[in-house]
Design a protein around this nucleic acid. Structure first.
Length: 312
RNA sequence: CGCGGGGUGGAGCAGUCCGGUAGCUCGCAAGGCUCAUAACCUUGAGGUCGGUGGUUCAAAUCCACCCCCCGCAA
């Protein structure tokens, strides 16, 4: 096999952290890491380092957290590291031409969808919202246009019936890491060739907005159930009850119809919280009222004194 | 100093404003009923009301500080 490639890694969240750990088990040394600056997070604006930063520091790899991607300072750092290859996983920033062209082997990206479908920030979530039966992971070369570069390798992964964004991410993350190693190996061997994306088949997975999680009770039960799964655990599907936010973490479609208006409680007992929708009854199985703990709905019902006829 | 809500038998909650017998829906135990049951009836056990200090004849309740949990925001 040919000589190792030095790699600079860019990424931020949990799945990117898992991936760099796997990458470091491979033959190619990670010589530098770029991640988002520590941000105030959680209550009391405590500053939290990104998951990728924690991993990098634990392995004593140099880390930079540039505020500006388009700066000479940033380019200077990258050049000093002189990477053969730049790997980008869920970094959350668009890279300029100058960065894309910096490494001899270019920039490679791991994306959690079967491109060209679901280009963009939240591919797994939107695949679940749409009720897709499969998702997947793609490695590709980065180009200036977001997620539009040539595909290197791709692996399809089935979506389980009760899949949530959290479970799908946990599933795709190691597969992506594996695919990344495989891609690098293949590129060295010359066994992989670029496959241009069919841009006419491209779809876009927009960044999630909180309001996207608001439940429209006139929708079919199965559509709402998918929304609940897709937005679990973040940003979560929600509705309102007595002027308070009620998050819904788990729901299941009941084989039952009701004549009451959509959003009305059909039944509330130790079997859960049954609510009518546009086309049938949905059982909210796990909920969380504002300021309270996340609970099985049977327990929520006990304390909240919510009854048949209540409206969301 | 980002904003806000909460901690009450094993679970989920009410009671706190206006201090005075520890309450609700469940769970648990025993007994009853029943062909039978996760159903129903009766009875019972189980609590230093997050902690410490203060005010008071008297504190779950009022005051001060501390610990823990959560929603918003990011």
């Amino acid at each position: 096999m040919s000589r190792p490639w030095t790699v600079v890694y860019m990424g931020t969240p949990r799945c990117a952290a898992d991936t760099i750990e796997r990458l470091m088990e491979g033959p190619d040394p990670v010589v530098g890491v770029v991640t988002r600056p520590d941000r105030p997070a959680g209550r009391g604006q405590k500053t939290i380092p990104s998951p990728v930063r924690l991993v990098a520091e634990a392995h004593k790899i140099p880390v930079i957290t540039p505020e500006k991607i388009r700066s000479d300072e940033f380019l200077g750092h990258l050049s000093a590291w002189a990477p053969d290859l730049i790997v980008v996983v869920a970094f959350g920033r668009i890279l300029p031409r100058s960065v894309l062209d910096l490494a001899p082997q270019g920039c490679m990206n791991v994306h959690y969808s079967l491109l060209p479908r679901y280009r963009g920030a939240a591919p797994m979530t939107w695949a679940l919202v749409n009720g897709d039966e499969t998702s997947g992971v793609t490695t590709m070369r980065l180009v200036e246009q977001m997620d539009a570069g040539p595909i290197l390798l791709q692996e399809e992964v089935p979506i389980a019936p009760e899949e949530t964004s959290a479970s799908l991410e946990a599933k795709l993350s190691p597969i992506g890491a594996q695919l990344l190693l495989q891609t690098i190996r293949g590129l060295k061997e010359g066994s992989i060739k670029d496959i241009p994306q069919r841009k006419e088949e491209a779809t876009y997975a927009a960044m999630l907005k909180k309001e996207d999680g608001e439940i429209d009770w006139t929708q079919p039960a199965r559509v709402i159930e998918r929304l609940v799964r897709a937005f679990s655990p973040w940003p979560s599907a929600y509705t309102h009850w007595r002027k308070q936010l009620l998050k819904v973490y788990r729901a299941s479609v009941m084989n039952e119809k009701s004549q009451v208006p959509p959003g009305e409680v059909v039944r509330a007992d130790d079997q859960g919280l049954w609510v009518n929708t546009g086309d049938g009854v949905l059982n909210l199985q796990e909920v969380q009222l504002e300021n309270r703990k996340r609970l099985p709905s049977s327990e929520f019902v006990r304390g909240a004194r919510i009854e048949k006829g209540a409206r969301f």
